[in-house]
Design a binder for these strands. Structure first.
Length: 256
DNA sequence: ATGGTCGCGGAGCGA
């Protein structure tokens, strides 16, 4: 089984990249973030026509998450079940075969010290509680998505420039490590311990085209049984190149 | 170089 995570930055704007990518790569499960549309506007028919079932938590203009799967999607839940956080469509969980999947679009946080930065840290604490309550670590668990946090400087093309800033601040990294303390492990890092592997490049400074100036903020966090079955985690850089790409590349985890 | 480019929605905000 292969499970991909991809922040598509609008599923409708990205459909001409998403559909051929699904057809060529044939991942079993795809966790999408920033779909940016209500459920009625989601291109469900087009995606079903290339062989995927769809589970959705949509929202107008901002946020929005979805799970696409070739196999039946069971036990779908939306949000944390906490009113304070569930007004933004950032969380969808489901079980596919023997894998419990949790797809997250973590709050960006704007900048360190901003109101949204504090909200981001609270949101990550709520995510940790949700994982502890709902995801038994003796099962195959895959918590993936856009976490909007780097683990450490190995995930940053220019650590000096980013030191202490949003996506790289110590409190954010502590919160990301806190998720792992529930029994999860950074899947990609196990296969790329040297770092320097990125998943997001800023449109503005043409970070992808100009010298691979990226950050790794999209992750697969895997339970022990999931990690034991995992044979690789790779970034699909081809999907970030070419015409009308998302600013994020997909990340694909393969399981035996 | 505190800039720059996207997407949404139809101006300015979020990323």
């Amino acid at each position: 089984m292969r499970i991909a995570t991809w922040n598509v930055n609008s599923v409708r704007a990205r459909l001409e990249r998403l559909l051929p990518w699904l057809t060529e790569r044939q991942p079993d499960v795809v966790c999408l973030q920033e779909t940016k549309c209500v459920d009625e506007m989601f291109p469900r028919d087009e995606i079903e026509d290339v062989g995927y079932q769809v589970a959705l938590s949509g929202q107008k203009t901002y946020n929005g998450v979805a799970i696409l799967s070739k196999k039946p999607i069971e036990d779908v839940t939306l949000g944390f079940g906490i009113e304070r956080f569930d007004g933004e469509a950032r969380v969808i969980a489901a079980t596919i075969e023997d894998v419990m999947v949790l797809n997250c679009y973590v709050v960006n946080g704007q900048e360190v010290g901003h109101e949204r930065y504090d909200y981001k840290l609270e949101w990550l604490a709520a995510l940790r509680d949700f994982i502890v309550e709902r995801f038994p670590m003796d099962e195959k668990v895959c918590v993936c998505g856009d976490f909007n946090v780097t683990f450490d400087d190995k995930d940053v093309y220019n650590p000096d420039r980013w030191r202490g800033r949003i996506l790289c601040s110590a409190p954010e990294r502590k919160a990301l490590m806190g998720l792992c303390e529930t029994g999860l492990e950074d899947g990609l890092r196990k296969f790329h311990p040297q770092g320097g592997v990125y998943t997001w490049w800023d449109y503005r400074r043409r970070g992808f085209e100009n010298g691979d100036r990226g950050l790794r903020i999209d992750h697969h966090l895997l339970s022990g049984p999931a990690m034991a079955a995992c044979t690789g985690v790779e970034v699909d850089r081809e999907a970030r190149a070419g015409k009308k790409p998302s600013d994020h590349a997909p990340v694909i985890a393969t399981f035996a």
